[in-house]
Write a protein that binds this DNA or RNA. Structure first.
Length: 436
RNA sequence: GCGACCGUAGCUCAGCGGUAGAGCCCUCGGUUGUGGUCCGAGUGGUCGUGGGUUCGAACCCCAUCGGUCGCCCCA
């Protein structure tokens, strides 16, 4: 009789980590949470599923959405196949705010760290199930522009603390390009924004080709191209845009807003934030400030932290005008980049500080007692429950990279001992007073 | 959804027409109460799957499934 084995394969796009990697991911999340809370953001968690109609209210993203249904559907179950996994946290937030409008305090500042699902082709840094860490500020009728700069500062703060190497956040304002297009008499700005957005990736020549293909004459294409290459560390982009000789009310408004945001970010060390007018972002609900963040050693990897301002978040779900601004860290993407490039400092495979070893069968009580005493004093302590040669017990600690091994007395009357696995040093110690 | 490349042990790969290999990992051993190094032994694969060509296929051909990378889109 041979046992039937179903050989499992990893499901691409749905990552899972070994304990030593997961441990670091948890540390990252702790860090992110701490910074969010330090700015007074509160946490919410929404269900993994939303009604399909809720998810669809914002636009055409149908092919990305995973629908859920029971394997065995009853005849009268039809109405229930209306559920699907959320593909971001902004839409669930909008629904949440609409639903709890009367119980929330505005401006509503919340953070949310959950998994989201997208039915896309997985690639490096692109998953079908991944974590996002969002913060958003929602106001009734308006949200001060100061939040736009504060959100940028928060994210720079977080990313610097994660030790991810050089990065840069690029900020722009959609009104600038929209106003520029309007000022140039361009009726459909969509293909223009798409071309501008690609300049970093495909270069100026290719971008210009795209612009011409979209129906622009050479003069207009040249203006747009010139515009798309403007990058400044302060608000001096304003003069450069004005020098293009196009004027429009929306353009002026966008310039004023972005200048204001940049001026409020001068406290950040130079280089972390850049006004980059080629940033527009595809998502159609952004109407003002837009953010993107790239790792400078590999800008092709994609944005690791992006977001923007929207005029009306929840208009599809409630009859109120609720503008907001939000930004999200692509935790899984960023983490994966660090992991595959061996930049995570992989350490212990468990949170254990001390392994208490079992000297012999008849010393179980003493060993357990020792473990309890150490645990009460705040250490993470594992007890080796199977009596095996000390050699085996040590090898276990070694494999899991547990930093200390505790030896309760082998014979009555002897002292306890503790061994530092890194230095190999072993000394006698008292479970009530020992310190690392 | 479209295009290019790739599927041999848990992992990284060699073999490219004549009966499945290496390194790492894992397990055990190298005697009394102590890990890492070293030495020895062992477990593990119907060579992604199905068909075809051949005396004979991991190897050649076709199909299929899976993976990787681009495009689209995005964290």
């Amino acid at each position: 009789m041979t046992k039937q084995i179903y050989k499992p394969r990893p499901i691409t796009g749905f990552p899972e980590w070994l304990p030593e990697v997961r441990l670091i991911e948890q540390r990252w999340m702790d860090h992110i949470r701490r910074v969010f809370e330090s700015y007074g953001f509160c946490s919410i968690e929404t269900p993994s599923v939303e009604e399909i109609d809720v998810l669809r209210a914002k636009g055409e993203v149908d092919k990305e959405i995973y629908v859920i249904e029971r394997l065995h559907k009853d005849e009268n179950d039809n109405g229930e196949s209306r559920l699907a996994l959320h593909f971001d946290q902004t839409v669930p937030l909008a629904r949440y705010v609409a639903q709890h409008f009367n119980e929330l305090d505005f401006p509503f500042k919340r953070y949310q760290m959950q998994k989201v699902w997208r039915g896309e082709r997985p690639q490096a840094g692109r998953f079908r199930e991944f974590y996002q860490c969002d913060i958003d500020v929602i106001g009734v009728d308006n949200v001060p522009l100061h939040f736009d700069s504060e959100l940028a500062a928060i994210m720079v703060d977080i990313l610097r603390g994660l030790n991810i190497g050089p990065f840069q956040m690029q900020i722009s304002n959609r009104k600038i390009l929209m106003g520029l297009c309007a000022g140039l008499g361009i009726e459909d700005p969509a293909p223009i924004t798409r071309a501008v957005d690609k300049i970093e990736k495909i270069g100026e020549t290719e971008t210009k080709k795209l612009l011409i293909e979209s129906g622009l004459n050479d003069d207009k294409a040249t203006i747009i191209l010139k515009f798309a290459t403007i990058k400044t560390q302060d608000s001096s982009f304003v003069e450069q845009v004005l020098a293009l000789g196009v004027s429009h009310e929306t353009l002026a408004q966008g310039l004023a807003e972005l200048a204001s945001v940049m001026n409020q970010l001068t406290h950040i060390e130079k280089g972390f934030v850049l006004a980059d007018l080629s940033i527009v972002r595809g998502l159609d609900y952004y109407t003002g400030t837009v953010y993107e963040t790239k790792l400078l050693e590999n800008t092709d990897f994609g944005s690791i932290c992006s977001g923007g301002r929207y005029d009306d978040l929840a208009g599809s779900y409630i009859n109120k005008h609720l503008p907001g601004v939000g930004i999200s860290i692509g935790l899984s993407r960023l983490f994966e980049y660090m992991r595959i490039n061996n930049k995570l400092e992989i350490g212990a495979k468990c949170p254990t500080d001390i392994l208490v070893c079992l000297p012999s069968e008849d010393k179980r009580d003493e060993a357990a007692q020792t473990a309890r005493q150490l645990r009460e004093r705040g250490f993470n302590v594992e007890l080796y429950h199977t009596y095996q040669k000390i050699k085996k017990q040590m090898a276990y600690a070694e494999k899991k990279a547990i930093p200390f091994v505790w030896f309760p007395p082998f014979e009555d009357g002897q002292p306890h001992e503790i061994k530092n696995m890194q230095t190999g040093e072993q000394t006698s110690a008292d479970p009530q007073t020992w310190e690392k």
